[in-house]
C-alpha cells in the first residue's frame, strides 16, 4: 500500500464543516456545467440552445 493522500489532505476531505461548504460549492458548479445548456455541434451559431 502506498499512501498517496496525506493525512492533512484526508482530514480536509472528511471534515464535515469544510465539506459542507464544498457540498454547496459543488452543487452550484455541477448545476452550472450540467444545466448550463446544450445544443448541436454542426451549426453551432444557430443551434446552441437549451431544451
Amino acid at each position: 500500500m502506498t499512501q498517496r493522500i496525506s493525512k492533512y489532505q484526508r482530514l480536509k476531505m472528511m471534515n464535515p464543516i469544510l465539506q459542507f461548504f464544498r457540498f454547496i460549492y459543488l452543487s452550484i458548479k455541477i448545476l452550472i456545467v450540467v444545466a448550463g445548456g446544450h445544443g448541436g455541434t454542426r451549426n453551432i451559431k444557430s443551434s446552441t440552445s437549451s431544451s
Binding site: 455541477i30 456545467v33 450540467v34 448550463g36 446544450h38 445544443g39 448541436g40 455541434t41 454542426r42 453551432i44 443551434s47 446552441t48 440552445s49 431544451s51
Partner: peptide, 15 residues
C-alpha cells in the same frame, strides 16, 4: 427540431 443536444455539446456529472 429546434431542440438539439449533441453529446459533443453537453456536460455530464459523474458523482
Amino acid at each position: 427540431l429546434h431542440h438539439k443536444g449533441s453529446m459533443g455539446n453537453m456536460g455530464a456529472a459523474c458523482i
